[in-house]
């Protein structure tokens, strides 16, 4: 049982690490600010959730897991808010997105 949990947490942590690095690559590779935000949200959601889930499996049913859940909830609520504020500020500042289709 213990080995099973360890393996699962290994997989989750490795997955989180992978998605985190992919998001970093996207931050460098994407052509403009708005597309970079999508890359950032890959690290922010998948990387963060998988890694914290891996840590939760390690901690078991303790107060540490409760704290991890709170960290995850805070990040899940605050990160889209910050991203939206950033996007809105950029658009109002006149930074036009390079788009293929504009259906505004």
């Amino acid at each position: 049982m213990n080995a099973l949990i360890d393996t699962a947490s290994w997989i989750l942590l490795a997955g989180g690490a992978l998605f985190s690095v992919i998001g970093g690559i996207g931050m460098l590779r994407m052509p403009d600010f708005y597309t970079r935000m999508h890359a950032a949200s890959v690290t922010d959601t998948a990387g963060m959730i998988l890694m914290l889930a891996g840590l939760m499996l390690q901690a078991g049913l303790t107060l540490v897991t409760a704290k991890l859940v709170f960290v995850m909830l805070f990040l899940l609520i605050t990160s889209p808010t910050a991203t939206h504020a950033l996007a809105r500020a950029a658009l109002e500042d006149g930074i036009e997105p390079q788009v293929d289709h504009d259906k505004r």
Binding site: L13, S20, V21, G24, T43, G54
Partner: peptide, 13 residues
């Protein structure tokens, strides 16, 4: 492994 991945991401950022 997780720490190394995070640090690499931080460098790219």
């Amino acid at each position: 492994v997780a720490i190394i991945a995070i640090v690499v991401t931080m460098l790219m950022i």
